[in-house]
Amino acid sequence: MLRKLSGDPECRNGTCPTLWGTEDAKDYVVQGYVVTDPARLAQLNLPEGETAVVVPATVLEEYFRAQR
């Protein structure tokens, strides 16, 4: 079971970039916009089975601010 830790405060439809925590609190799942720009993907050199997503800074900032 995932638990929502932080979301995009500008979200209006409920399906926006979000930071999730796993039930054992050992991992995070990041929901964001898939990187499709070939130049950016080439820089990342992702292995099979991995993808990259863009997450607004506000999502992570909100999470870390809440942890203080």
Rank of each mutant, 00 (worst) to 15 (best):
L44M: 14
V54D: 15
Y33I: 09
S6A: 15
P38F: 07
W20H: 04
E48W: 10
V59D: 00
R3K: 06
A66M: 06
D8E: 06
E48T: 13
G32N: 03
W20K: 01
P17K: 01
R40Q: 15
E23K: 15
D37G: 09
E62A: 12
P56H: 04
E10V: 08
F64M: 07
V29Q: 08
R12E: 13
A25S: 14
T22H: 07
G32F: 03
P9V: 07
R40L: 14
C11I: 05
P17V: 00
D24Y: 15
R12D: 11
T58Y: 06
V30Q: 01
Y63M: 06
G49W: 09
L2V: 03
G32T: 03
P38M: 06
D24G: 09
A66Q: 07
R40Y: 12
G7K: 00
L46P: 04
V35A: 07
P9S: 12
L44D: 02
F64L: 09
G14D: 08
L44Q: 10
S6F: 03
D27R: 14
W20I: 00
M1H: 14
G14L: 03
M1V: 12
Q31G: 04
F64K: 02
V53Q: 06
E50M: 14
R68Y: 08
P56K: 03
E10S: 13
P17D: 12
K26Q: 15
S6W: 00
D8Y: 08
R65L: 10
T18V: 07
A66R: 10
V34Q: 13
D8F: 06
C16Q: 03
V55L: 05
V55K: 01
L46D: 04
M1R: 05
Q31K: 06
N13K: 05
R3T: 14
